[in-house]
Design a binder for these strands. Structure first.
Lengths: 239, 239
DNA sequence: ACCTGAACACCGTTCAAGT
DNA sequence: ACCTGAACACCGTTCAAGT
């Protein structure tokens, strides 16, 4: 083995679509998704904004590439998108796959925001969903039930639940909500009573205001229960 | 009764926040959400863009007002956000309320897109969710289960299911997907088989690629089933 | 082949000024 | 009280030009 020279400074490494995607991910991790502009990504790479266009068609394509890169991260974490032929315990397999995807999302909490605006699926993403479907089909789903299942799962299939009305600053929103609810309690009797009863734990890892691990798993398990019930009834109806 | 004079032309009616919101809704209905800019809304009202700022704080506030106006439309359709005290058939009541909300969303198919970007809840919206929760509490939910239920429902509580990877042009996307799948069938065995088996009906009213009425109701009913199961078990566990 | 400088079109928004 | 003209900062993107 020979001693490697010092890594060359970033400026010397030629640009590539892959480097652009990775720089965008680092930038979003560090400064948030709002800070991700063509100019800022270029700046992080020590290059002019217009240079990016040689490697990516436009900003939408850049974001597609970012999502694709995240899917590769999930794939690596899973050791590949695996569908075991003949495996009938679809529920455990599906649940584990989704919860692993979620660990990647938790590392990139801005990811749900950009995934929500995607309009085209990348190949890696389609392969991921094919593996989710495969797990269900091997577990005895009809194609029709599998199709329904994909739509019922929605973003939960990727490990997150995009909340409606996600506040910018959860703490400020909590305070504001408390003040508002105190005044309006008579008009919002059920919500006021509920919020007095259930406490948000601000310390747990979460992808949104209430998208913490226990909330996510509650919803996921409810959906898996419903799918299992329907799997059994469609299977028995065929006999 | 006296004969009313001809309605005065739009230019004469003084602007108001309400007129701004309604103009924005008409514009989005007619030309799509992408066409909704401060300049275009102003133009539709025969006024300069800067005049809007006298009535709404900024574009975010304008969109909040648009959502609030849509909620009023739902409220009118329902004859008020109703919670009947002592009504134990929570399931029928909740299902009906949500499906009525959906009819309003179907009239404004761009609404899910802007609701997804909202960060603050308007009062009308909070009252709506209070009524959904109220229906469940009257039906025997604990506050904890009601809280879970709100999150499991997510956007479906408002009558829509925001799809991941919604194509701009569903027809083009279908064709493109078909072509892609033909080539890649060996790598996507389950999806290819499923798509050959389940057909999309392009004629049905839908809010998204696959968010048609039957798909929406399948998911809603699965969730309601799951909630009922958990309501029964939390109730019996208290005895 | 790869990168850049200058410029364009289009945003939301500000501010001082009009009536 | 209500509306406007001019201007600013910041986008994504184009195009012809550099090396």
């Amino acid at each position: 083995m020979t001693v490697q020279p010092e890594p060359v400074p970033d400026q010397r490494i030629p640009l590539s679509a892959d480097r652009v995607h990775r720089a965008a991910i680092e930038l979003a991790d560090a400064e948030g998704i709002a800070a991700l502009t063509m100019r800022s990504v270029a700046g992080a790479l020590g290059v002019e904004a217009m240079s990016l266009y040689y490697h990516v068609a436009n900003k939408e394509a850049l974001l597609d590439g970012v999502v694709d890169t995240l899917l590769h991260e999930i794939e690596a974490e899973l050791g590949g998108f695996q569908v075991v032929k003949g495996e009938t315990d679809w529920r455990t397999a599906l649940r584990n796959t989704i919860l692993v995807a979620r660990t990647v999302m938790l590392r990139h909490p801005w990811a749900p925001t950009i995934i929500d605006t995607r309009t085209t699926m990348t190949f890696t993403l389609i392969r991921y969903f094919d593996s989710l479907l495969g797990i269900m089909i091997e577990g005895g789903f009809t194609n029709d039930l599998g199709h329904h299942a994909m739509h019922v799962l929605g973003s939960r299939g990727l490990g997150f639940n995009k909340e409606l009305f996600e506040p910018d600053d959860p703490q400020a929103a909590d305070d504001e909500t408390d003040a508002m609810l105190a005044d309006l309690a008579p008009q919002l009797p059920y919500l006021v009573a509920m919020l007095a009863d259930v406490a948000h734990d601000p310390t747990e890892d979460k992808l949104g205001w209430c998208d913490d691990q226990s909330e996510f798993e509650f919803a996921l398990d409810l959906i898996l229960d419903g799918l299992e019930t329907r799997r059994i009834s469609t299977t028995s109806a065929q006999h």
